[in-house]
Amino acid sequence: MRYGILLLGAPYSRQASHSALRFARALVAKGHILDSVFFYHDGVYNAARLAAPPQDEPHLMDGWKALHDEHGVKLDVCIAAALRRGLLNETEASRHGKEGYSIEAPFALTGLGQLVDLGLRCDRLITFAP
């Protein structure tokens, strides 16, 4: 089956990101297709490129990246939710006159239309919330 995940919870604040990542790994291990993870609401913080969790804690951002690298899972971040919260890629940072940037590939800034499309094109959309 083709799955999509909607993640609304911030990493390390709520369990949602851990639940979603574990579910995502189990999905692909079972042979399902995980089309995309869409990060919305506080879930956008999962894409913060400067996150530096202690070594004895799971590195959630690296976990998402690995899913992309190994299984081609798209990592889509809601642009409106991200910009408000200070999460900008290089293009947006320069457009807004900011030094430095806080999101990079494989995380991609995109619109909510992608979320609606994902929900309608997948067999299942599973939401993990704060």
Partner: peptide
Amino acid sequence: DVDGFIELTEQADKTITWY
């Protein structure tokens, strides 16, 4: 377990999240 969670989502038409 998480595999059972996935099986439940396979069987269900939709999964609705409450929080």
